[in-house]
Amino acid sequence: HMTFVALYDYVASGETDLSFKKGERLQIVNNTEGDWALAHSLTTGRTGYIPSNYVAPSD
């Protein structure tokens, strides 16, 4: 899985969403939902949907 870094803070709007903080590292599990991606946080160990425009690929 590619690793991504959060560009902004995001507060989950539902139970299936994943909250994260700017700078948090995430792995995209499934990116077939258009503007949303299923992601796993390497920081918190949690998995949920995130807005895909809130993250960018990290080196």
Rank of each mutant, 00 (worst) to 15 (best):
M2Q: 12
M2D: 09
M2R: 13
T3P: 06
T3C: 14
T3W: 14
T3Y: 13
T3G: 06
T3V: 15
T3I: 15
F4P: 00
F4E: 00
F4H: 07
F4C: 09
V5R: 04
A6P: 01
A6K: 00
L7K: 06
L7G: 04
Y8T: 07
Y8W: 12
D9C: 06
Y10M: 02
Y10Q: 01
V11K: 09
V11G: 04
V11T: 12
V11F: 10
A12V: 04
A12I: 03
S13A: 12
S13E: 11
S13V: 15
S13C: 14
S13L: 12
G14V: 09
G14M: 08
G14C: 15
E15H: 10
E15N: 10
E15K: 11
E15S: 12
T16F: 15
T16G: 14
T16N: 14
L18Y: 04
L18D: 01
S19V: 06
F20C: 05
F20D: 00
F20K: 00
K21Y: 07
K21A: 09
K22Q: 07
K22P: 03
K22T: 06
G23Y: 05
G23W: 04
G23S: 02
G23M: 02
G23A: 03
G23L: 03
G23D: 04
E24R: 00
E24L: 01
R25N: 06
R25M: 14
R25Y: 14
R25Q: 10
L26K: 00
L26H: 00
L26N: 00
L26R: 00
L26V: 04
Q27Y: 14
Q27W: 14
Q27D: 05
I28A: 02
V29P: 06
V29M: 13
N30K: 13
N30V: 11
N30I: 11
N30L: 13
N31Q: 13
N31W: 15
T32Y: 13
T32P: 12
E33A: 12
E33K: 12
E33M: 13
G34C: 09
G34N: 08
D35H: 12
D35T: 11
W36Q: 04
W36M: 08
A37R: 09
A37E: 04
A37F: 15
A37V: 15
L38W: 14
A39Q: 01
A39K: 00
H40P: 00
H40G: 02
H40N: 06
H40E: 07
S41T: 01
S41L: 02
S41H: 06
S41N: 12
S41D: 03
S41V: 02
L42I: 08
L42K: 04
T43R: 08
T43E: 12
T43W: 07
T43K: 09
T44H: 02
T44A: 02
T44I: 01
G45A: 03
R46T: 04
R46H: 07
R46M: 10
T47C: 13
T47R: 08
T47I: 10
G48M: 02
Y49V: 06
Y49Q: 05
Y49H: 06
Y49C: 11
I50N: 00
I50V: 10
I50Y: 01
P51F: 03
P51W: 04
P51M: 05
S52L: 15
S52I: 15
S52F: 15
S52W: 15
N53A: 13
N53K: 13
N53L: 09
N53Q: 10
Y54I: 07
V55H: 04
V55I: 13
A56D: 06
A56K: 10
P57I: 11
P57F: 12
P57M: 11
S58E: 15
D59L: 13
D59R: 10
